[in-house]
């Protein structure tokens, strides 16, 4: 009985503490923003052959997302605010498989591990920069794979996969990434 007023007083005191909302964000939101920033930077430091843009809508650069990672809204924002190689960014989420070859960047979510081979086969021989975000994607044939180490993001590069797609990467990008060999 005696504790009731004390508990109420403590409760009101705690409520009365000032609430300062700093810029600290939830983990999933920050990681997603950093991933999209990586994608943007990869696009800046990779080079596509001229033929890569002959069949696309005029002056557009297509970024495609396959799978369930919640990057769609951020990629939409990127498309609305930036350009790549002087081209308007066109963002497409989960396009039909036969249309993947028209993507210039194909981001493959970690949820698509079992479909990875089929997705890579759909873009084989086409100028598509494939970016993954799950363990082993680069070894299995994706051009670049993002991974987390000690709470920070880094990336690994499969140079042969990049060359097979007809792309080249800048020396700066090659110097920052981890080079991996493919499985075949």
């Amino acid at each position: 009985m005696w504790l009731r007023p004390s508990v109420l007083a403590l409760f009101l005191f705690v409520l009365g503490l000032p609430h300062h909302s700093l810029a600290q964000e939830g983990q999933p939101a920050r990681e997603a923003k950093v991933k999209v920033a990586f994608i943007y930077n990869f696009a800046k430091f990779a080079n596509w052959p001229d033929r890569a843009f002959e069949t696309l809508p005029h002056n557009s650069f297509s970024i495609c997302l396959v799978g369930k990672e919640p990057l769609g809204n951020l990629l939409d924002q990127l498309a609305g605010s930036k350009t790549i190689k002087g081209r308007t960014i066109l963002f497409r989420k989960n396009p039909p498989q036969h249309d993947l070859r028209n993507c210039r960047i194909l981001y493959i979510s970690s949820s698509e591990s079992l479909r990875l081979d089929r997705l890579l086969k759909a873009v084989a021989g086409h100028p598509v920069l494939t970016i993954g975000s799950a363990e082993g994607y680069a070894k299995r044939g994706a051009g670049i794979n993002l991974f987390e180490k000690n709470g920070k993001l880094s990336f690994e590069i499969n140079r042969k996969a990049i060359l097979r797609s007809g792309l080249t990467l800048s020396s700066e990008l090659l110097a920052l990434g981890v080079l991996v060999e493919g499985e075949n």
Binding site: Q24, E25, G26, Q27, R30, E31, K33, V34, V36, A37, F38, Y40, N41, F45, L78, S81, K82, E148, G151, K152, L153, S154, E172, L173, L176
Partner: peptide, 19 residues
Amino acid sequence: ILELPLAALMKLEVTTPSS
């Protein structure tokens, strides 16, 4: 974050003790 260079992006914490 979009304006950061690649090397700086690689130093950003994406998982923090509080989150």
